[in-house]
């Protein structure tokens, strides 16, 4: 049951630099670990994170096995109009999660 925590300011003034914080629940299994019987624990990580604002991509990150469980990604962007941020996480084993948050620009 994956869950995400998103922190986007509800309001901003036109042209403001805003900080966006995202936290996604994921085990981020590296693929380098072995079980007690010597079998490789298969890799299971998030490979890509994307943020779109009103359909336009504003931020993208590729994730690799060295990133800790429950990746916390924060970034800055500027806002010029009210709209909706859409977040998408894609990963191994068909992992695909989305979340969204709205902002009002005054």
């Amino acid at each position: 049951m994956p869950s995400a925590l998103i922190n986007v300011p509800k309001k901003a003034r036109r042209g403001d630099v805003i900080e966006i914080k995202t936290l996604m629940s994921h085990i981020m299994e590296t693929g380098y670990r072995h079980t007690a019987s010597g079998d490789v624990v298969p890799r299971d990580i998030i490979t890509s994170f994307t943020c779109r604002f009103n359909g336009t991509e504003v931020f993208r990150a590729d994730l690799y096995p060295a990133i800790a469980a429950n990746p916390f990604i924060t970034f800055f962007t500027t806002v010029t109009e009210s709209g909706k941020f859409e977040f998408e996480w894609i990963g191994d084993k068909g992992f695909s999660e989305t979340a969204q948050a709205s902002i009002t620009v005054e």
Binding site: M1, S3, L5, I6, N7, K21, L23, S25, A69, N70, F72
Partner: peptide, 20 residues
């Protein structure tokens, strides 16, 4: 700072699951 802010605290992911 990670503990203080609920959207940065990974423990809150478990709390959300617990709520469900």
């Amino acid at each position: 700072a990670m503990q203080d802010e609920d959207t940065a605290n990974p423990g809150m992911l478990f709390v959300l699951d617990g709520e469900a």
